[in-house]
């Protein structure tokens, strides 16, 4: 089997490239600390979300000093909270989102950021972000979910500490 020297060279370069890509991603996970959505959100009964201690009354919950949990229910064609009322979180805090769906598969994407997840009925997506800038972000559903999918949007407001109104369970 004749393999040209140049082709062997390219084989080596290609392997180097592949190992480099895997290495970069591993660095992102370990060095830069970017965590993946995984299975630690657990499961819920999508038919009984209203009886769930948190999803029954979705919203922003304070869980510690500068730590907040945000429970969001995605359903055709709104985020609750997010669409009718904006999700409000204080700046320089650690915010953990818990997102689930009440009907079909949706997406939850904070536009222009890395906060992006699928919302699957029966599953809870959990991810944590740090807010470092006062500004408003848009939220879109980025998975087709039915005929008014394009109307499914919302807002996250990162507000200064003194403007934040920490009412339990509400935004």
């Amino acid at each position: 089997m004749e393999i040209h020297a140049y082709e062997k060279l390219w084989l080596g370069a290609a392997l180097l490239l592949i190992v480099g890509f895997i290495g970069t991603v591993a660095f992102g996970a370990v060095g830069a600390g970017v965590d993946m959505i995984d299975d630690d959100g657990g499961t819920v009964d999508p038919g009984a979300l209203d009886q769930h201690p948190k999803f029954g009354d979705p919203g922003v919950y304070q869980s510690g000093p500068n730590e907040y949990d945000v429970y969001v229910v995605a359903q055709q064609f709104q985020f609750q909270p997010g669409t009718a009322e904006a999700i409000e979180v204080p700046v320089d805090s650690t915010v953990t989102f818990h997102v689930t769906s009440a009907d079909v598969i949706h997406g939850f994407e904070v536009v222009g950021t890395n906060a992006n997840t699928m919302a699957i009925p029966g599953q809870v997506s959990t991810f944590t972000v740090e807010t470092d800038e006062v500004r408003d972000h848009g939220i879109v559903c980025n998975e087709y979910c039915g005929s008014a999918h394009h109307a499914m949007e919302g807002t996250v407001k990162v507000v200064p500490d003194d403007e934040f109104n920490a009412t339990d369970g509400g935004a």
Binding site: V111, H137, G138, V140, E143, H149, H150, E153
Partner: peptide, 18 residues
């Protein structure tokens, strides 16, 4: 810029894409 796929109208009321 965050424009989603699979949507009829990627124009939203509450924000603009940058």
């Amino acid at each position: 810029a965050g424009v989603p796929r699979r949507t009829a109208e990627p124009q939203y009321n509450s924000f603009d894409f940058t």
